[in-house]
């Protein structure tokens, strides 16, 4: 073998090792958490409230709380995000406006999650007086999800061929009718993918709800948007840092982590699947 062939071989093996490391990371995390968490997951764990100062029972209130927070965030961020994407793709604003908005969207996406938490604490919890509540937490998480939904919607709408916009306009439809009846329906699967990915992201976030929504223990289920809630990710954190019975709590934390991991990963896989199917129909 020539020298340069050997170098190529070594180089390619190194790249392969890098790729393999990703699989190793993902496999390792899933394996270790599943190995110790799976045995604790059963029907009672999913449907009961915690008992005996967090050493027994289930995590049902935390599941419900995470569901409310996530839905609230999406209800807030989806219309706003789609509207923003509509403006950017359909109303072709002037260059500097596009640049300004793109920079602010990218920067919003890069803001550390704990900073969102402080913003939510100052504005929603205190200034608007919503208190530590589902509402405050949802709004905070919604701002975090906004850039994700904007970019997914923008991508989906850009992929709609210009020719069918022309077809609609040529039939006498106004621009808004064209957007509402042609562009949005055609972009819907792409927007949906973005929404599902944001659900996964929002459901797993902890730092933004630390000071805006989450509580270690709440008796019963939340009954209004102004209630404090338990949330799955915060529950894991609290079990590991605030408890008095480390052994039992770690066992429950394993199960909760596995549950959260399972939820978030299946949501992402669903989104990836929908997107792959969608790409096929576009190319056909």
């Amino acid at each position: 073998m020539k020298r340069r062939d050997i170098i190529q071989k070594i180089g390619f093996s190194a790249l392969f090792a890098c790729m393999a490391a990703n699989i190793f990371f993902l496999g390792g995390i899933i394996f270790f958490i599943a190995a110790r968490g799976l045995s604790s997951i059963n029907w009672a764990f999913l449907t009961q409230a915690p008992r005996d100062s967090m050493t027994a029972g289930g995590v049902a209130p935390a599941i419900v709380g995470t569901f409310y927070l996530t839905m609230g965030a999406i209800i807030f961020a989806l219309p706003l995000g789609v509207a923003c994407a509509i403006y950017l793709t359909e109303y072709s604003p002037k260059g500097w406006i596009v640049n300004l908005l793109r920079i602010s969207i990218n920067n919003l996406a890069g803001v550390p999650s704990v900073v969102f938490g402080l913003f939510g604490l100052t504005v929603f919890v205190k200034y608007f007086g919503f208190g530590v509540s589902i509402l405050s937490g949802s709004l905070t998480l919604g701002i975090l999800a906004l850039p994700l939904i904007i970019s997914a919607s923008q991508e989906a709408m850009t992929a709609v061929p210009q020719s069918i916009r022309e077809a609609s306009l040529a039939l006498g439809a106004t621009q808004w009718e064209t957007i509402r009846r042609v562009v949005l329906p055609a972009a819907l699967p792409g927007i949906l993918t973005g929404v599902i990915l944001s659900v996964g992201r929002v459901a797993g976030e902890t730092a933004p709800i630390l000071f805006t929504a989450a509580a270690f223990y709440v008796k019963g289920y939340p009954h209004s948007p102004f209630s404090e809630v338990m949330a799955l990710p915060y529950h894991i954190y609290a079990l590991m840092t605030e408890g008095t019975h480390p052994v039992e709590q770690t066992r429950i934390a394993y199960a909760s982590s596995l549950l959260l991991l399972g939820l978030v990963l299946s949501v992402s896989m669903l989104a990836i699947y929908i997107r792959a199917r969608q790409r096929k129909t576009y190319n056909a």
Partner: peptide, 21 residues
């Protein structure tokens, strides 16, 4: 997708993994 899924693992799960494993 493996890379994308790795990106979607919640940070709390990473934290928990770091702490206990």
């Amino acid at each position: 997708p493996v890379i994308e899924i790795l990106a979607s693992v919640p940070s709390i799960v990473y934290g928990f993994f770091g702490m206990v494993i």
